[in-house]
């Protein structure tokens, strides 16, 4: 909901600095490409409306034009990054598993490249006043499955290897991470959240977690790597264990 701008931020994805510096040009290319439809639109707007008969329309639609320009930039950023992502995935398809954190490991390298590509659209859409754009709209383009009737606007969700069922409630400031870094190793594992699950505020789901139907996770708790939360049970604690009554 109405969190301050500094907390809404973009992804807490730790992109490797060596790889980021090398692919900086790709990042800038995406930014430039995403501004092309916007500038075409502005050009059209000025050319067609800046004459004596239609000048009143020019001023009438000036504010709508500004709003439209912002959204055109957002959608074109999303589309260009999805297109480039498709090409990159053809070169090397994303895989789950445990990898080494070195430049020789192709899976680690391509995970970083994918995140460099996703960074700009996620950043620009996070600054949007419509709260459902970031997670529900953008992440679906990146291949995350999010069911109907799900509340997940205030949480941070990884942009790949995540599937969320129907009628799930994910609390404020929770994060669902499908990646993990441990010393020299790098883990990528799918997180699955099934239907009607309830996850409290400020929870963390680590990679490989499976939350079965109707399970409930209490606030301020985290799940272990590869944990399975069974049906119809309440879990609490660090890491999450079955609640004893």
């Amino acid at each position: 909901m109405f969190q301050p701008a500094s907390l809404k931020g973009e992804s807490p994805v730790p992109i490797d600095e060596r790889i980021r510096n090398r692919y900086l040009l790709l990042y800038i290319l995406i930014i430039i490409l995403s501004f092309i439809p916007c500038s075409l639109f502005e050009y059209w707007y000025v050319v067609y409306l800046w004459n004596e008969t239609l000048i009143w329309l020019f001023f009438l639609f000036l504010l709508l034009n500004a709003l439209g320009a912002i959204y055109i930039v957002q959608f074109s950023a999303l589309l260009t990054s999805v297109l480039i992502l498709k090409v990159v995935n053809l070169i090397h398809s994303p895989k789950e598993g445990i990898f080494k954190r070195s430049l020789e490991d192709r899976d680690y390298l391509f995970w970083n490249i994918r995140n460099i590509i996703k960074k700009w659209p996620l950043y620009i859409i996070a600054s949007n006043p419509f709260p459902w754009f970031k997670n529900r709209f953008t992440l679906r383009f990146f291949g995350v499955k999010i069911g109907r009737g799900t509340i997940c606007d205030n949480s941070w969700i990884s942009s790949e290897f995540v599937s969320i069922g129907k009628n799930v409630i994910i609390g404020m400031n929770s994060s669902i991470l499908s990646f993990g870094i441990e010393q020299e190793n790098f883990i990528l594992k799918k997180v699955r959240v099934e239907n009607n699950v309830l996850i409290g505020a400020k929870c963390v789901l680590l990679p490989g977690t499976i939350v079965r139907q109707n399970a409930r996770l209490s606030a301020h708790s985290y799940t272990n790597h590869n944990a399975v939360l069974e049906e119809n049970l309440i879990y609490t604690g660090h890491p999450a264990k079955i609640q004893n009554d």
């Binding site: 606007d153 409290g200 505020a201 609490t236």
Partner: peptide, 28 residues
Amino acid sequence: FISTSGVYKTPFSLIIIVQLFIGGLVLL
């Protein structure tokens, strides 16, 4: 045990567009 929050998206949430429009109108 649980503190979850947030609200569902309803048709009424499009009031944001009305607010944007009114704010913009005064500016204009």
